[in-house]
Design a protein around this nucleic acid. Structure first.
Lengths: 249, 249
DNA sequence: CCGGAACCTTGACCCAAATCAAATGCCACA
DNA sequence: TGTGGCATTTGATTTGGGTCAAGGTTCCGG
């Protein structure tokens, strides 16, 4: 097994792709889809592997098919902040940009559906369906970033943890077009350190707050990477915002 | 003078518009520009006026021509975080969305170049130039939001203040296609409270850090709303990140 | 079954920024 | 020229989360 990104021969047809109707290809049909299908290739990364370093040349863009990746930014003295969390169906890379602006790391085992950048950019010009879907996804990501700004700027450590769990639960549920409620389980494919980098905390504070939420019955831990939430509404209350999570979209 | 948004009769031709080559209309020429010009109308707001409330119907989109506006999000208990800062040439509103997601407030006197939403959406479909410019602007805004995440998550109060000043200086300079250097003046069309909401601080902390930067000669104050920076590189050093601000774009 | 590494938890202490509380400056306007 | 209403500054005190330090788990390879 190579240490580098593994170019993976086994790729699925788009028809049975789990992110077929949520990714950048969502609105494509017939010829458009065939063209994308013809140029796609898969890559797999192990948890912890770096996909690209900030400043490196990046000549592909991709959709996350499975797993999770984090975009990360750093100050010179090493302080680290996650600035993007990519879940299945999210888009990676910026058309028109040669160099990666952020370091991308697989936080769990990761499968990407990649397209070489240049041909993809051409497709973007010829094919308004793809371009408009990408605009829509970018606007959604901007909205998510804005919720994240509120989280980082104004929420307490406990609210931050609860918010992260709510976000993961909602994203997980959205993939199967449902809305989380009642007793639910959340996969948590992040180390405590990655959670801390996401939330602007230290890993010690993350650990302490997780313990506190557990002690108070808001969550139960099933191993380190799986969380049981007895009452989803209780968790939402703890997260500080009581928005209902908006339309299913 | 009405208390509400002032629909303003005096509007300039696009040719002499100060944001002609930076706004969503940047790549438009001839017919495209004429079409935009035919449907545009100006609105003016006084400092402090609300442009739209979160949740209200919003049936126009707009470019900021002059002045500054803040997008703001709130938790139920009143904690407030600014999640967007709109400067001249920035785009306001989301095509395809009926309701405003954020409250928009003029932080200084503000001039908007508005388009009714429905006709603008139609234009977006028919006219790839505008759509691709909007995608580009949205991607830039996402990058800015990601720098902002780093600021909120990991920077000290002093670094936050310095970073805000650097951002304003760069944006001001970019409008005239220059890069800030040496001794510069920065307009600061924000109250201390608005700065605090931007930076995830209290207004007292903002005031204290401004005083400290002044005491140490990093900045001089010329009234409350104008800052003189004797050495721009010194200010950038104080901001924590030493990126050079990227290409002029 | 043991040793080690990676990850996580817990405790004690500290500090940067929040909170609470006055002052002070600065207009606009009577 | 005073006066009320802001925005801002400054001071005293508290506190949430950071830092430093020590153990505990889990899991893998030998």
């Amino acid at each position: 097994m190579p240490h580098d990104a593994a170019l993976c021969a086994t790729q699925q047809p788009c028809e049975i792709c789990p992110i077929r109707y949520r990714a950048v290809c969502a609105h494509c049909e017939g010829d458009e889809l065939a063209e994308l299908e013809g140029m796609k290739f898969y890559r797999r990364y192990e948890a912890g592997q770096v996909v690209v370093w900030a400043g490196d040349r990046m000549d592909f863009v991709a959709s996350v098919v499975a797993g999770m990746a984090g975009l990360t930014q750093q100050l010179e003295d090493g302080r680290t902040q996650m600035v993007g969390l990519l879940l299945p169906s999210d888009f990676l890379g910026r058309p028109g940009r040669e160099m990666a602006t952020y370091t991308v790391t697989a936080t769990s085992n990761l499968v990407l559906c990649c397209f070489r950048r240049k041909p993809f950019e051409k497709l973007l010009i010829d094919n308004p369906r793809i371009a408009s879907r990408l605009l829509e996804m970018t606007l959604d990501e901007l909205d998510a970033a804005r919720d994240w700004l509120l989280l980082l700027g104004r929420k307490s450590a406990r609210e931050k943890i609860a918010s992260l769990l709510v976000i993961l639960a909602r994203r997980e549920a959205a993939l199967i077009k449902r809305r989380p409620e009642g007793r639910i389980a959340i996969e948590l494919p992040l180390t405590r350190e990655a959670m801390a980098d996401y939330l602007g905390l230290t890993l010690e504070t993350v650990s302490r707050q997780m313990s506190a939420l557990k002690r108070e019955g808001v969550i139960e831990l099933d191993g380190k990477r799986r969380v049981i939430v007895p009452s989803f509404v209780r968790l939402v209350t703890e997260s500080g915002d009581d928005s209902d999570g908006g339309p299913l979209s």
